[in-house]
Design a protein around this nucleic acid. Structure first.
Lengths: 350, 350
DNA sequence: CGGCCTTGTACTCAACATGAGCATAGCCAT
DNA sequence: ATGGCTATGCTCATGTTGAGTACAAGGCCG
């Protein structure tokens, strides 16, 4: 049968996000499922196992890296990609995420090889309330800012930006093969990280990660290098993940941050009733920035996004807070109902 | 080698958009390339040909339907999906689109079968200036509103909405198997089409199309039915396309409309120098709505998106118009530079 | 019990953005 | 020059947004 052929694996992967208190967490497997290697049948249930010779452990360190839930599409049984993904997630984590949205399809030859097969991985974003997870693969919830320390501005501008990232990126930019390349690199870095006149844009998570990758400042960038050079400052640029999973996570964060402002997605992460401060904290956690309390309340209440339930929560540490619930009718009233994020321009305060 | 296996085709398809005068146009092939059928080698050059027994002509009418450019990924040669797509587009249309963005990955078992293979199609959006196209497959530019007549509100609310779509959709909603289903359907239709208190949202192109599909009001919905029932009002719901290509086009329109307001993408569709009216007309064409001229100018000029070139265009039919150009520096200044679309709330006017 | 700390909630204000329309400028054809 | 046309400048009312002040209502502690 025809020329020597490279096997294609259509994989489905899920970034499953929840919020624990004020921390966004992602579901990761420290012991991922083995993926069928070239020549094996596709779309049959994969068997959990230690990492084998031809599985994930292709490049150094991969075995110990966190991975997101992943499984191949069953071309016969799975009617749609989304159904296939739900199946996998259920099997691997016993979670039934309510909200599920396709993110992006990754297929770079060099960045997501598994064994010798070419991997096409379709990534999804799932939102859920935090729950106990269990199952093969040792699932656990990891705070997403462990992977992206520079994305959390709630405590002010993260120091790693100026202490490590900026000098390293500038060094990289300056080292461009010719002046034009250097200029492009500088400008890209400025836009992505908000240097010079450019402002920091909380979205653009992916731009930033990709820049760090290109500049060799994240561990993953060295995975497939012939001489696995030790990334010097890489320890400052967050915890690495398996394959290109950190890139997928960056995509998820970017999408979620963007969507916050025009779709009522936060409520997927909250219980039915919540105080306004809780809602605000969750939004802040995701956006990685601090908001103005009174204006947030105004936005959300007079904007018709929530409605009072009448009940109150008393253990607030101060005056009891009213409990609110998402107001579904808003979908019928406004074209793009979300939280336009009442930024806070200056230092701190209430 | 393992159980009876279904072949997977990873296809790359492109919605290539340009604007001719005040009409957005999409590149379609009236005689699409044949796709390798089950059992054949993947990723080798497909050969243009009349539609064969196991190719596109699976369901009635498919042969005569417009299709968008499409080609399989070469798992060995194509380093990335984007590069693979560029290769296909070049070969099939001789175009070299500048802007290219991944849209979505479609893989519904029932909606995109080719022969017996399972098709995973990764769709891209490409923006370009209109050019002569040629090549196998007889490429030509087709106004996109021919496929979506209800999306063009420039001449006021399209009459097909009230004359055909609304009654038909309401009939469909009312016919739900149980009251809960009926209620859901009504509400979905109201949100998507802006009935009742809900406003018309120019984005949501995909929601609308999918609703029409589910309700059996577009021709494609009947393609795979065992008894190909003649869709009655389907002629009012726009020109059909092959397979699920119209859905892909809807996705592209939605994405493009959305992106207009926060990324300077329009300029990909315009020559380097243009009058403000031309810019406005192009935006209007894409958004499917009419804008307020003076405010549009204010937005775009004081917003720093364009800069005067000094040159003027004289054949305007009135006072000569200054020629403007996109001002790249805006990328360094604002987080989300785009055209926040100065709507016009009332009838017509200047 | 009363002060004080804490968080919740109401309201005000200035700055800015947005929708709408009037008025004037400058070309062409008659 | 006059009228028709599009271009462009400017005003105005209203809405939205960032920021802050003030007061409410619990718990805790002396």
């Amino acid at each position: 049968m025809s020329p020597p052929q490279v096997h294609i694996v259509v994989g489905l992967s899920a970034v499953i996000v929840a919020v624990r208190g004020e921390t966004p967490v992602v579901l990761t497997l420290s012991r991922p499922l083995e993926v069928p290697a070239a020549g094996e049948a596709l779309g049959l249930a994969a068997v959990p196992s230690a990492v084998g010779a031809d599985g994930w452990a292709e490049h150094p360190g991969a075995a110990e890296r966190d991975a997101i839930p992943f499984g191949p599409l069953d071309p016969v049984g799975d009617r749609t990609l989304e159904l296939g993904l739900r199946r996998w997630v259920r099997e691997q984590t016993r979670l039934q995420p309510g909200y599920l949205e396709q993110l992006y399809t990754f297929a770079d030859r060099e960045r997501s090889r598994v064994g010798s097969a070419r991997v096409i991985s379709v990534a999804y974003l799932a939102l859920t309330r935090e729950e106990e997870v269990s199952g093969a693969g040792e699932p656990r919830w990891v705070p997403w800012y462990e992977y992206f320390p520079w994305e959390d501005w709630r405590g002010g501008r993260p120091s790693v930006l100026d202490r490590h990232i900026r000098p390293a990126l500038e060094h990289w930019a300056a080292g461009g093969s010719d002046p034009a390349v250097s200029r492009t690199r500088h400008s890209r870095a400025a836009v992505a990280f908000g240097w010079g006149s450019a402002p920091w844009d909380p979205n653009r998570v992916l731009d930033r990660y990709e820049l760090l990758y290109e500049a060799g400042l994240v561990t993953e960038a060295w995975d497939d290098q012939p001489n696995p050079q030790p990334p010097q400052a890489a320890s400052a640029t967050g915890r690495p993940m398996a394959l290109d999973h950190r890139r997928i996570l960056a995509t998820a964060m970017e999408r979620l941050r963007g969507k916050l402002s025009y779709r009522p997605v936060v409520f997927e992460l909250l219980p039915v009733a919540f105080t306004l401060l809780r809602l605000q904290r969750v939004v802040e956690a995701l956006a990685g920035d601090v908001l103005h309390k009174q204006n947030f309340r105004r936005l959300v209440v007079t904007g018709g996004l929530v409605e009072a339930t009448g009940a109150v929560e008393t253990n607030t540490g101060g005056r009891p807070a009213e409990l609110f619930a998402f107001r579904r009718e808003v979908l019928l009233e406004r074209p793009a109902p979300g939280l336009g994020l009442p930024r806070r321009k200056f230092p701190a305060g209430q």
